[in-house]
Amino acid sequence: MASVKLTTSDDKEYTLDRELIFQSNLIKNMVTDLDVFDAPIPLPNVTSSTLDIVIKYLKIHKDDPPPPDKPIEKAVDDMIDEDKELMKLEFNIMADVILAANYLDIPGLLDIGCRTVAWHIKQCKDYHEIREKFNIPKELWRSEEEIAEMKKELNGILG
């Protein structure tokens, strides 16, 4: 079976089966359009630790049928247990994985990443919890009046 070589940003080389890595539309198009097989493809935006997680995902979904053209909206936590297990990550690593999925153009991984983040947001009661959970520093970009106004807005929605 033909394979594809990839080099991550920290100079680690990976040799992967074509079938596996062709779930990434970026690599698929690169290889089929340019017809490069031997030269390693550099991935300057992806570290090896991130790529390890991506490869885990690719192995789980190796035998999936191709996704339909029109996306179907699923519930936030409607995913298989392997994916849930895979997405139990620190948020900074999760962000890296989502960015890598976006860059490599792997729609399935991007989707479960987004849904996992959405699920975590849904667990938060208010914006303080969101900040705490995602480690977002408190920014002073509103005046006191605006904060009061905004609190009114939030309460208005609940009422």
Binding site: V76, N92, A95, I98, L110, R115, I130, I136
Partner: peptide, 29 residues
Amino acid sequence: TTIKVLPREILISIFSYLDMKELLNCSEA
């Protein structure tokens, strides 16, 4: 990398799973 660095189009697809109240919470984060 924090969750903050995600580009707009990814944030949009994340936010599309939320309802109105959760969305307002996010907009304050």
